[in-house]
């Protein structure tokens, strides 16, 4: 199935969770804020929210330093 991450098409296996998507993209789930189909996900939902074909994800990634 296909999802859209920050506007880019991403191929994922059907039934993939948000965590799977982040891993595929090489992103550390701890440092990313995820909006899925217009909803901000809680940290717990990363491993329980099943993506659908055509899901639209906005990923805001943070790097360390402050």
């Amino acid at each position: 199935m296909k999802v859209f991450c920050n506007g880019q098409e991403q191929e994922l296996t059907p039934g993939a969770w948000v965590t799977d998507c982040l891993n595929t993209l090489g992103l550390d789930p701890l440092s990313v804020v995820v909006e899925c189909d217009g909803k901000i996900l809680t940290r717990e939902e990363y491993a329980s929210h099943e993506l659908q074909d055509g899901s639209v994800l906005e990923l805001i990634r943070f790097v360390g330093g402050g």
């Binding site: 701890l30 804020v33 943070f62 330093g65």
Partner: peptide
Amino acid sequence: DDPAMKAAGLRAVLQHLPGVFYVCAS
């Protein structure tokens, strides 16, 4: 400093502080 807290901060504000202006850094 910690990127996990940076993400936590943005999530907390988007979910719980809708009327508060927020400026984060990365």
